[in-house]
Amino acid sequence: MSVTVMIVDDSKLARIVASKALAQLQPEWSKVEAGSAREALEVIENETVDVSLIDFNMSETDGLELAAELRAMRPEMPIAIITANIQDEIIARAREVGAAFIAKPVTSDGLSGFLSGAALKLRTTRA
């Protein structure tokens, strides 16, 4: 089963860190990167994206707004909001748009719960 994960973060370092954790947990999965919400929307137009990891703190459109847009387009897609801004309010808003919450810095431990849940969900929807 081929799975593509989109990593959206305006920080290249953050994308590297997330990719590394992803590669450890799901070596078979492929990834595609976007440096902003606009780029993310372009990617999703042209490619098949199964899972999205989205940074919250981005200029112009923030991660929660992007997540809401993606949710509207792809109600079934597993989405996670990644941020060091661990305020209760942000976690609550992530939950409202149906996104998981992962604290930065991203570690394989922190990511594993979301990814196994996503894998399970993908298997069920594709089955």
Binding site: S11, N57, T83, A84, N85, I86, Q87, I90, A103, K104, P105
Partner: peptide, 9 residues
């Protein structure tokens, strides 16, 4: 970003 955000949050 990570350090200050986690602190302030």
């Amino acid at each position: 970003n990570v350090i200050l955000n986690s602190c302030l949050a």
